[in-house]
Design a protein around this nucleic acid. Sequence first.
DNA 1: ATGTAC
Length: 476
Amino acid sequence: MDTSQFIQRDETCWEIQPKGAMRVPAIIYADAQLLQDMDQKVYEQLTNVATLPGIVEAAYAMPDAHWGYGFPIGGVAAFDPDQGGVVSAGGVGFDISCGVRTLLTGLNIAELQPHKQALADALYRKVPAGVGSKGKIHLNHKAMHGMLTGGAQWALDQGYGEPQDLERIEEHGCMAGAESHYVTPRARERQKDEMGTLGSGNHYLEVQRVAEIFDQNVAKTFGLRVDDMVISIHCGSRGLGHQIGTEFLKEMVMSAAQYQIVLPDRELACAPLNSPLGKHYLGAMRAGINCALANRQIITHLTRQAVATLFPNIHLGLLYDVSHNTCKLEQHMIDGQRKSLFVHRKGATRAFGPGHPDLPTVYKEVGQPVLIGGSMGTSSYVLCGTKESEQRAFSSACHGAGRAMSRTQASKQWQGRTLVDKLAAQGIIIRSPSMRGVAEEAPLAYKDVGAVVDIADRAGLARKVARLEPVICIKG
DNA sequence: ATGTAC
């Protein structure tokens, strides 16, 4: 896009001053190159978000931002319920609570080498992947309610996982305020056989090698050493989250006029936080968060089982579990005053700094682990939250590389089989039910994740701790 | 992202 539309505030901060219906500025964190390469749609969508009622401070875009539904993916916006603030289904995203969880193995990658193919096979057999994938778990009405209100805590109670997993999950594995009665029969129907499945698109289960450490102290606290094997899971709330998003979006479009909300774009449909519709969405969305937390918890259990067939004596402990499609009630300082705000993060990771009360004790001194998934075949990163991120974007950071090309464009340009062979030659094993899906996820269809993470680090959104390289990737 | 349109 045209960078002359911005006032450059510092090395990584670009501002669009309020104009027209904008209530606050729009701010993008990027360098000149990333900003130039960013779709003009990010500018339009972010300035549209800045017009919404009750928005506080600014509408923010992370360095991985790209064109999304209504809100850009990589967008952060906070709303004050006492100032007419709103909640938007498109501002959370359709894959509610999509996120990344990383497991530590303590195993040196060299020990994996003789078992690499076998582990790829075991994981691929154990964890269902792909569009409409179903698992071995089938939820009746009671179990569905338990899952929607209990999240990873429910999964643990069903025997999936270990008690010590919970403290290393946002919300300690259970999102409070979930109201399962706002989740429709149709959404439940779509989910009842999908627990413990990866889904499709950019979702994956990846065995990785710790390739580089940027901060020895924090890496030690996080349990990361060079050449350690780790496993990351990227997925969300599957059909259920999508159905909740679809249904509430429609209702929000229909009721906008009733709430006197002027929408610059239908896709920005929202409802006042204090309205019945806003509250119902929050209740359903929180149930969607629990679905994603339970899903990643079950996949963790399946992963442990698969790994145990080859390495019966190792323990897979959680590094952390982050969600990057949410709207959460948080305390933030605005003009020296503590405010309770509803922070939308869509394709953006929460990144609380050192000392934050919601962090597990083990990470309280260093800050929250921020898990950044790379694209297929490229590096992933572990960062940690900083104090200054609170002032930069409500303690938020990027969530991945960010698409640089549409799925259709990518599937025309590359062939799945060729990519799989090419990555195999680099020592990366890909297992996927869909070669078209693989083509859509071609590494070059994404931005350079290293450049994105460098900007997040330089902007103070989060600090680089470690780089992970893929070894085995189970793709949805 | 998604029973890749209801």
